[in-house]
Nucleic acid binder design. Structure first.
Length: 113
DNA sequence: CAAGTGACGTAGA
DNA sequence: GTCTACGCCACTT
């Protein structure tokens, strides 16, 4: 990891740290806010590389996949994530976070007319 | 410098 | 509604 305060990862952590309790943001949204609309995957990488000591102060569990789905991955991560979110009052529907209620940004869901 | 990796996203079947 | 195949990005080796 070298050095550099402008590292992408660092920016991801800083932004995620700003997500209020009870709210969630998608990887894509975080990437867009950082100026990289297609860097969702890189955001996932940043959280995956999140050092243990940082994990304690970065609410990584508030970052989820598009559509409010928790990204499956090896380990107890997903299960823990859901538990933490529920502990903050985040509601789920059909296994997905209700973005309309807890999304950091207004859901840009297509209008049903 | 080139190749590989992976907590994503979208389009297509 | 599900599952699969690509593309994208930052970072490591």
């Amino acid at each position: 990891m070298s050095q550099g305060t402008d590292r992408f990862f660092r920016r991801v952590y800083a932004l995620v740290r700003e997500i209020p309790r009870g709210r969630v943001a998608t990887y894509g949204q975080v990437a867009s806010m950082l100026g990289v609309p297609r860097g969702a995957r890189a955001v996932g990488w940043a959280l995956r590389a999140l050092p243990g000591d940082e994990a304690g102060r970065v609410p990584w569990h508030r970052v989820i996949g598009a559509g409010g789905r928790i990204s499956p991955r090896p380990g107890p991560g997903p299960q823990v994530q859901r538990r933490l979110l529920e502990g903050e009052g985040v509601t789920f529907g059909s296994g997905r976070v209700d973005l309309a209620r807890h999304g950091l940004l207004p859901p840009g869901r297509p209008r049903r007319r």
